[in-house]
């Protein structure tokens, strides 16, 4: 018996990256922007999407949602009620979405009739941040009922995010949440990231956030047309 060492150096995110790449090419071809919305269970991701549907429609932007959950189609039903094309992804226990599953759900959407797709990831601040799904940007959602220091407790997501949304700010008068310290924590892990303080129900801050989304989409189009 003799023991031999075999050097391999094989990328372990390779399969996921391959599917993410396929998704990216499809989105580029169809000129669709895809944003990956990540936050804890109950932070207001679905409510945010519900309240974006109408104003985006008003701006002539056609949106769809890929809804990721461990179980149930409740969230998809909420969005379907607003005539938003939605595809439900059930992970059946897995705590995050992976690129292959997203790609298959994506091709079920009417991609010729869309401008923007929001992927509502599984409610979780840890694992979804690890997996690229072919998105243009990850967006971190944090509600002010969760605690100021979540950005430093779950830093990967807040480091990777291209924008951070603080939701439920209408509850501020009822909470001891220190918003400035939360903003400082976010900027500590991601110094220049834009932060939107909004209330999906009350509507405050929504316009600024939508403008950012439109601007981001515009920049992306410019990038792809120049290349």
């Amino acid at each position: 018996m003799s023991s031999t060492q075999i050097k391999v150096y094989r990328d372990l995110m390779g399969a996921n990256a391959e599917w993410a790449g396929k998704t990216q090419s499809l989105l580029k071809e169809k000129s669709i922007t895809m944003l990956n919305i990540i936050g804890s269970p109950g932070c207001g991701k679905t409510t945010l999407l519900e309240n974006m549907a109408k104003p985006l429609r008003g701006k002539g932007i056609r949106m769809a949602v890929l809804e990721g959950d461990v179980e149930t189609t409740h969230d998809a039903e909420r969005l379907d009620a607003l005539q938003v094309p939605v595809s439900q992804l059930l992970t059946g226990g897995s705590c995050h979405l992976e690129a292959k599953l997203v790609h298959h759900a994506l091709i079920d959407l009417p991609v010729d009739e869309l401008d923007i797709i929001f992927v509502e990831n599984v409610g979780n601040l840890v694992c979804p941040a690890e997996f690229d799904i072919g998105e243009a940007a990850k967006i971190a959602v944090l509600s002010i009922t969760e605690g100021e220091d979540k950005p430093v407790k779950y830093p990967l997501l807040f480091t990777e995010a291209k924008a951070v949304i603080l939701t439920k700010v209408d509850l501020l008068p009822h909470l001891s949440f220190d918003i400035q310290s939360c903003l400082d924590y976010i900027h500590k892990v991601n110094p220049h990231v834009p932060i939107f303080q909004l209330s999906s129900i009350g509507g405050s801050g929504m316009e600024e956030w939508l403008n950012w989304v439109m601007g981001w989409r515009g920049d992306e189009k410019k990038d792809s047309s120049s290349s």
Binding site: T4, Q5, K7, V8, Y9, D11, L12
Partner: peptide
């Protein structure tokens, strides 16, 4: 980083 680096195998001789 995240990669498979090395395999140690035992061969029958």
């Amino acid at each position: 980083e995240l990669y498979l680096k090395n395999l140690e195998v035992e061969k029958d001789e």
